[in-house]
Design a protein around this nucleic acid. Structure first.
Lengths: 250, 250
DNA sequence: GTCGTATCTTAGGGCTACCTAAAAATGAGC
DNA sequence: GCTCATTTTTAGGTAGCCCTAAGATACGAC
């Protein structure tokens, strides 16, 4: 009945997303976990699983654990990316708190078209990487939002000139360094990717290129692997791979 | 059965929005117009109209023309505001074309929570009003999006210093002028509202205050009324009202 | 007046996605 | 190997929102 190639409904996307998150944590999902994660009854999950299996997005058989097929994983990553891009925009640029950003991303992700998501991501990264929009710019905005204080625009501008002058020389003199030199929590901009055949494949497939923002999330005790966030994807890089990515801090 | 105070479903919001738009143009709506606007069959419209009438949002009787109640108008304006805020963000900041912005706004508006919408609006206006983010900043972003050209960041920054210096004096010297002096199409920032009792009431209810962005859309032949767009609302001001709003161009 | 067309309503279905209740399968303890 | 609590599935129902088909109403042309 249901067309295999049809777009997923919003609720099926939710199911797939939840399965992805559970599988990421525990390697396999059970119906019960999914029901709890989404706040629905187990009976509803069964129906959804059948539909997802019909579309070949999950491996599913009654009473068996549930895992994602490669296509299912790809589809889920796309959904998660939308979610993360929205959430990143809400927290980083709009300055909303974590909870509201999470809630808002959940409610908007299904309607967000791919090209708009791309633009939103590009914009978020652009603002973060642009020296003209520094931390003071962000706090100007937040002051306006919360305190409704009048922006001391003239002072801000004269102060900003000084900052820009410094930034101009910094940008010119910035020496790219390998990703491995960057501290966790710091965001940086990709300047070049070496070893294009090996590392680059995965990254380029995801749309990572010169100018893309990368954030180090966590470094394992021995420095390998390195968990990074790029373009709304969380992924882990080998030390070797990270070495061949050159960046400058944003 | 259906709770009168319940939130409107996404599709009922669409109906209400469509009715508002039709009523704005032609003073009253017919089922057929609504069906055409939303691309559904007339029979579906009938059901929706009954539900909207049950919630006292529209005046509806079989075979009669449809108009909005005051509550319906208010509700519709809220929905339209969300739509316009999203669309404004997509076109003004993300640089998406009209059609994609329209389509995207339609698909996202129902999920957009009020506080997030407020923030998004504040951000959009902030960026437009901030001298640090001028036209060159915008085109830097768009170049990156489309041509994927490498941003000449250092040059941009040195060029920007000059611009900022000029902007700093401009901001300091900017003399507020009445809204009536502004040309259609120009965006400007509200500096003060005089006659707080009369004009201000309507505007303050909408959230217009010092710092809010106003855009002149159209001036009638005799200079009255003046159609403006503020905070996603389209409204028309009397000449008298417009005179008492002082602004500086953004 | 009545005929015809355009418009609107009613009636009856289908689909999605949720629910409850009860049956079936699983698996740990005895 | 049987029993029982837990988990999962099946079955059947509800609500929202869309559809088609057919009947009701309005209104201009004759």
């Amino acid at each position: 009945m249901s067309d295999q190639n049809a777009q997923l409904s919003a609720s099926l996307e939710d199911y797939l997303e939840a399965i992805f998150r559970i599988v990421s944590k525990k390697s396999a999902a059970r119906g019960r976990d999914i029901a709890k994660a989404l706040g629905v009854r187990a009976a509803s999950v069964t129906g959804a699983l059948r539909l997802l299996a019909e579309r070949k997005l999950i491996h599913y058989a009654p009473y068996e654990v549930i895992t994602l097929t490669p296509e299912g994983r790809k589809e889920a990553e796309k959904i998660i990316q939308k979610h993360e891009v929205l959430k990143g925009f809400f927290t980083t640029l709009l300055g909303l708190d974590e909870d509201m950003a999470e809630e808002g991303a959940c409610r908007l992700e299904h309607g967000l078209a791919q090209p708009i998501m791309e633009r939103l991501l590009a914009f978020t990264e652009f603002v973060q990487a642009c020296p003209r929009c520094g931390e003071d710019w962000r706090s100007q905005f937040l002051d306006r939002c919360t305190a409704r204080s009048k922006p001391p625009c003239a002072e801000c501008l004269t102060g900003c000139q000084e900052r820009l002058r410094r930034a101009a020389t910094e940008v010119k003199d910035a020496v790219p360094q390998p990703l491995t030199e960057i501290q966790p929590g710091v965001k940086c901009v990709v300047k070049s990717i070496k070893n294009r055949r090996t590392v680059a494949r995965r990254l380029i497939e995801m749309g990572v290129q010169r100018g893309t923002l990368v954030e180090i999330k966590r470094v394992a005790p021995l420095g390998d692997p390195i968990a990074v966030k790029v373009r709304g994807y969380h992924l882990s890089l080998r030390l070797e791979e990270a070495k061949s990515i050159e960046v400058v801090p944003a």
